[in-house]
């Protein structure tokens, strides 16, 4: 195995770029959040395109603005959102493994389609795991390229363990040509306190169109629309799963994502499927989304099919 060395240097940080592996598991009972890529789909593809095994750390670039200089030759791929990335000023094709030479400059602009791009390098970014994971959670000061939960800053060197990899590998159209700007159809598995919501509210939940609020981050995405009413206003705090859709007393649902708190006390409609979470993570504020009640069997089949491609 080649030794890790700085492969990419940050020349401009942009608003938010974080190193993420699959997430931090086994410690949620201690109040430690899951972390990991909010768009699992884009992250998995970026890694897959450069031949990395499931779980390799990749960069999650939110909104763009990040600029990097290659300090050695390496194979990389960008998947997920189109943030108008360029290589030495020329448009960089997404969803494709390509070779970048030492000295070349990779720059993310602003969102064209989607919100978060994932950058993977062949061999993976190297960082010391914290509590078993390099997933970067700023709030907890855990993980990331420096182990302290910091977002990328100008001057940071990203260490890589380079490995030879084929260039030119691409993703199939169904994956690579997602139009994240279209209204998102989100599969929700009903459960939890769904029976405590009024019939009218349940009708609205699954028939109204919702808008992504400004209050949207890696912890959760607030949706605005009709006011949902629940007989319960608060509960004794209990564990919260990925994608749980909670409804605080203001009646506006919040879908909880990777950096959510581990326990909470608002009633919930159920949980979005992992792929629905991925899709929601690519929505910008103001975008339209719909909640669709889904059956466990079909959701499980879709998830296993997705994961099966990344063995």
């Amino acid at each position: 195995m080649t030794e890790a060395s700085v492969g990419l240097r940050v020349t401009r940080a942009g608003p938010l770029a974080l190193l993420q592996d699959a997430g931090r598991f086994g410690v949620r009972r201690l109040g430690v959040t899951q972390g990991g890529p909010v768009d699992l789909h884009g992250w998995a593809w970026a890694n897959h395109l450069v031949g990395n095994a499931w779980g390799a750390p990749a960069l999650e670039v939110t909104f763009g603005g990040l600029e990097l200089t290659a300090e050695r030759g390496l194979v990389l791929a960008v998947a997920g959102a189109d943030l108008s990335a360029t290589l030495d000023g020329q448009p960089l094709p997404g969803w494709r493994a390509l070779f970048v030479e030492r000295g070349q400059q990779l720059a993310f602009g602003s969102p064209v389609n989607g919100l978060r791009a994932y950058l993977a390098v062949a061999g993976g970014f190297a960082a010391a795991p914290v509590l078993g994971s390099v997933a970067c959670v700023a709030r907890e000061g855990l993980g990331g390229h420096d182990g302290q939960g910091h977002r990328l800053a100008e001057g940071d060197g990203l260490r890589v363990t380079p490995r030879r990899a084929a260039v030119g590998r691409t993703a199939p159209r169904d994956d690579a040509e997602i139009d994240y700007r279209r209204p998102a159809e989100l599969a929700l598995l009903p459960g939890a306190q769904i029976a405590e919501f009024s019939g009218e509210s349940l009708f609205q939940a699954f028939n109204a169109s919702w808008r992504v609020d400004d209050r949207a981050d890696r912890m959760g995405v607030r949706l605005t629309g009709p006011t949902l009413q629940c007989r319960m206003t608060s509960m004794i705090s209990e564990g919260i799963s990925l994608g749980a859709v909670q409804v605080p007393p203001d009646g506006q649902p919040i879908a909880l994502l990777n950096d959510r708190q581990t326990i909470g006390g608002y009633p919930r409609l159920g949980a979005l499927t992992p792929l629905a979470c991925s899709r929601l993570a690519q929505c910008l504020p103001g975008q339209e989304v719909r909640l669709n009640a889904a059956a466990t069997e079909s959701a499980l089949e879709a998830y296993r099919r997705f994961r099966g491609g990344f063995a």
Partner: peptide, 23 residues
């Protein structure tokens, strides 16, 4: 098993859905 979250009155059990179905 992926994670367990005990809390006051409940236990949230999270498992690997690739190897175990909810059923």
């Amino acid at each position: 098993l992926v994670d367990l979250v005990p809390s006051y009155t409940t236990l949230l059990v999270t498992f690997d859905p690739l190897r175990l179905s909810p059923g």
